[in-house]
Design a binder for these strands. Structure first.
Length: 210
DNA sequence: CACCAGGCAAGTA
DNA sequence: TACTTGCATGGT
């Protein structure tokens, strides 16, 4: 397995090159994007973030103060806008309650502890929590998503119903615990899932892993 | 028209 | 515990 995961990474990197994730100008922007992109196309998220940026609202303080109603209307292009506005507000309340709205303060905590705290926020599940840890706070945590599960299971590396933690542990056990590697590997798996016919109903044909 | 997107929580049995 | 459903816009 160690061999397998390493060789998959090398093939993906050779084929696609560096992915430059996460697109975003600040840790806060990455965190907001992580919530907005839940089950949603990234292009739609960019429009929503653009609306916030255009009104100079992309700061912890502003987002904390703005009404949930107004926030919802601004993030509308990202879909599920009512529930996502609620989730963003929940996250900001958490950020202010525990860290005075200061992300650097948050980043100083132990990663495992941050993860547990994030998971206790309504609207933040394992993938969103891990995306925040890896891409906003630069902690060496592997992010598992639907593509990761689909690609690994279609290559017979895991059962189709493997749990999030099982898959995450696989990468943690067999790869060097390295922020840069985890960053690139997850982004490459997403890239692979996108460009190939690896959609929900697709087969893994023309696969650059072969 | 159908299908999909960088999930998650709440409801049901 | 193990399924199912709601959430919603925008691109292909």
């Amino acid at each position: 397995m160690k061999q397998k995961l390493g060789s998959i990474y090398r093939k993906l990197y050779a084929h696609f090159g560096p992915q430059h994730w996460w697109p975003g100008d600040s840790a806060l922007e990455v965190m907001v994007g992580a919530i907005l992109t839940q089950n949603t196309n990234w292009g739609n998220v960019e429009k929503a973030i653009g609306n916030l940026k255009g009104r100079r609202l992309l700061s912890a303080k502003k987002l904390y103060q703005i009404s949930q109603r107004r926030l919802a209307s601004l993030i509308r292009p990202a879909g599920y806008y009512n529930i996502k506005a609620k989730r963003l507000k929940e996250f900001l309340r958490f950020l202010f309650k525990n860290y005075q709205g200061n992300i650097k303060r948050m980043s100083r905590q132990d990663p495992q502890q941050i993860r547990e705290q994030l998971l206790s926020v309504n609207g933040i599940g394992p993938e969103t929590a891990d995306s925040i840890l890896l891409y906003a706070l630069n902690k060496p945590v592997f992010v598992v998503d639907a593509y990761t599960r689909r690609i690994l299971s279609r290559h017979q590396l895991i059962p189709e119903d493997a749990s999030y933690d099982e898959i995450q542990n696989l990468f943690r056990k067999h790869l060097k615990k390295d922020v840069k590697l985890f960053n690139e590997y997850h982004a490459l798996l997403v890239r692979l899932g996108k460009v190939l016919c690896l959609k929900k109903k697709g087969k893994c044909s023309l696969c650059p892993l072969k």
